[in-house]
């Protein structure tokens, strides 16, 4: 059975086809208004995430389907100690596919092993967040017109930022991709990802300050740096401003730079940047909904 657990499980060709469908949905929304009629999506959110859950629900509703589920573990049978395996076996009797967010890493892999219906990983701990990556890929393709020959800057919390991990895994498969990783030393990408990039031969550099590299980037992917992630106050004070994007900091940036952010943001992109034509983060939200629609259709089709 086809699931979406890790973006790397899907070939670039399969992802391109999904993006083609999403593009078509944007161009011809009326063609899809009842494409998932009489189908049900269960959203099992073991930890709160309003925007991802609403994006899935909006996607399913726009396809003419229906949604059910829970939005926090305390209101579900999980609070009684039920395993992930039993939960999905039960919910699989009610719904045609399941979108799951879980604080434990690898939970969707367990779910997929037991579920009678397709599983979508809607985020597992600090591990993967593949549907955010679908939104990111479509945004890059629509903004840049390509997914190869790009210098991609990723800035902020790269250790715990699962959107960053999924995006790197996906983009590493395209030709002539180079990553510029901008983070404090404590929040660099995890070792497995660094090893993975090395074994794939994908070049990357690691720097501490955004100012030093912003002029070299085609895409800048911002994430939030939380104060509590720093090991000491002195480093936080020294580096905090480096991870906040302002119009001033954008001065040396390219005119065709695409500024992205998985949202929600706190203060890492100043609101003045929103008006800049290079800001793409709200387009990303919309693209995310269309990619989730394309994904739902693809999984329902494959499960027939």
């Amino acid at each position: 059975m086809l699931h979406l657990l890790d973006i790397a499980d899907w070939s670039p060709e399969d992802l391109e086809k999904l993006m083609d469908v999403a593009d078509d949905m944007i161009a011809r929304p009326d063609d899809y208004f009842d494409a998932a009629k009489r189908k049900k999506l269960a959203t099992l959110f073991y930890e709160p995430s309003t925007r991802t859950r609403l994006s899935f629900e909006a996607a399913m509703l726009e396809l003419g389907g229906q949604v059910l589920g829970f939005s926090e573990a305390s209101s579900s049978s999980v609070s009684k100690g039920e395993s992930v395996a039993d939960t999905v076996r039960t919910v699989g009797c009610y719904a045609d596919l399941i979108a799951m967010r879980h604080p434990k890493e690898g939970a969707p892999t367990v779910a997929a092993a037991f579920s009678p219906v397709p599983i979508i990983n809607a985020g597992d701990g600090g591990h993967h967040h593949p549907t955010q990556t679908l939104a990111d890929l479509l945004t890059i393709r629509r903004e840049k017109g390509r997914l190869n020959q790009l210098v991609i800057g990723l800035c902020g919390d790269l250790q715990f930022g699962r959107t960053v991990h999924s995006l790197m895994n996906a983009m590493a498969r395209y030709k002539s991709i180079r990553f510029v990783l901008v983070s404090p030393e404590e929040l660099r990408v995890p070792e497995y990802l660094r090893e993975g990039m090395k074994s794939l031969g994908v070049p990357f550099t690691e720097v501490e300050r955004l100012e030093d590299v912003i002029g070299t980037l085609d895409v800048l992917y911002m994430t939030r740096v939380q104060k509590e992630r720093f090991f000491n106050e002195a480093d936080y004070v020294r580096l905090k401003d480096s991870y906040i994007l302002t119009m001033e900091k954008l001065k040396p940036a390219r005119r065709d730079l695409s500024i992205m952010h998985p949202l929600p943001r706190v203060n890492e992109i100043r609101q003045a940047v929103d008006k800049d034509p290079r800001a793409c983060y709200f387009k990303q939200v919309l693209n995310g909904k269309h990619m989730r629609k394309a994904l739902i259709l693809k999984l329902l089709e494959a499960a027939k």
Binding site: S83, K104, H127, E191, E195
Partner: peptide, 26 residues
């Protein structure tokens, strides 16, 4: 997760690197 076996998968024989099948931890 109850009764779930831990699984390690060999990633790099030369460097003797394994990763957790579920969470990818090295």
């Amino acid at each position: 997760e109850q009764e779930l076996q831990h699984v390690f998968v060999l990633k790099d024989r030369e460097k003797a690197i394994y990763s957790c099948y579920y969470c990818d931890t090295i």
